[in-house]
Amino acid sequence: MTWNSSLAAVTSLTLDGVAQLSEHRWIFFFVFFALYVFVLVSDVLVIYVIASQRSLHRPMFVLVAAVLLNSLCGGAAVYPRLLADLASGLRHVTVPRPVCVTQAYVVSSLGSSSFMLLAAMSLDRYVSICRPLRAAALMSPAALAALLLLCFLLPAALVGGAALQAASLPLCRTRLRRLYCDVYSLVTLSCGGGAAPGALPLQVYGLLCSAATMLAPVLFVLVTYGRILVICARDSRTNSSKALRTCVPHLLVLVNYSVTAGVELLQRRLQAGGAPAASVLSSLLVFIVPTVCNPLVYGLKVEQILTELKRLLRVS
Rank of each mutant, 00 (worst) to 15 (best):
Tyr184His: 13
Leu110Cys: 05
Val127Phe: 07
Arg97Pro: 10
Phe115Asp: 10
Ile50Val: 14
Thr246Asp: 15
Asp182Tyr: 01
Ala275Asn: 11
Leu171Asn: 08
Cys130Asp: 12
Leu13Thr: 03
Ser279Leu: 13
Leu296Pro: 09
Phe115Leu: 06
Ser71Tyr: 01
Leu118Trp: 02
Leu138Val: 05
Leu15Val: 02
Ile288Gln: 15
Met214Cys: 14
Pro217Glu: 11
Gly89His: 03
Ser5Leu: 12
Gly226Glu: 05
Ser185Asn: 11
Leu123Gln: 15
Val39Ser: 12
Ala145Ser: 11
Leu312Asn: 12
Val183His: 07
Asn294Cys: 09
Pro170Asp: 10
Thr102Ser: 08
Leu86Thr: 03
Ser71His: 00
Cys191Ala: 07
Arg311Thr: 14
Arg134Asp: 15
Val263Ser: 14
Val159Tyr: 06
Arg175Met: 09
Leu118Glu: 08
Pro98Val: 03
Met121Asp: 06
Arg125Ala: 06
Thr260Tyr: 01
Ser71Val: 00
Arg58His: 10
Ala9Glu: 13
Ala119Ile: 00
Asn256Val: 01
Asn239His: 08
Val218Ile: 09
Ser128Glu: 04
Gly161Ala: 00
Ser240Asn: 11
Ser128Val: 00
Pro132Thr: 00
Pro249Glu: 06
Ser241Tyr: 00
Asn239Ile: 02
Arg237Thr: 13
Ser283Trp: 02
Tyr257Asp: 12
Tyr184Gly: 11
Leu110Thr: 02
Gln203Met: 10
Gln103Asp: 07
Val101Asn: 03
Val95Pro: 11
Phe220His: 10
Ser42Leu: 04
Ser22Asn: 15
Ser185His: 03
Ala195Asp: 13
Leu40Glu: 14
Val39Met: 12
Ala163Asp: 07
Leu13Cys: 08
Ser140Asp: 07
Thr102Lys: 00
Gln165Thr: 09
Arg131Pro: 05
Ala84Tyr: 03
Leu7Tyr: 15
Ile228Lys: 10
Asn256Glu: 13
Gly193Asp: 08
His24Pro: 06
Val93Leu: 07
Leu86Val: 02
Ile129Ser: 04
Val39Asp: 14
Asn70Glu: 12
Leu21Glu: 05
Ala104Ile: 03
Ala145Pro: 02
Ala277Phe: 09
Leu306Trp: 10
Leu110Asp: 09
Leu202Gly: 04
Asp43Phe: 00
Ala66Val: 02
Tyr298Asp: 06
Ser71Gly: 14
Leu45Ser: 14
Ser279Asp: 13
Pro201Thr: 03
Val230Pro: 05
Leu312Phe: 08
Leu7Ile: 00
Ala196Asp: 10
Val78Gly: 06
Tyr48Gly: 15
Val106Cys: 10
Ala8Asn: 04
Leu144Trp: 01
Tyr48Cys: 14
Val223Lys: 06
Leu13Pro: 08
Pro249Ile: 02
Glu264Lys: 01
Arg131Val: 01
Ser22Tyr: 03
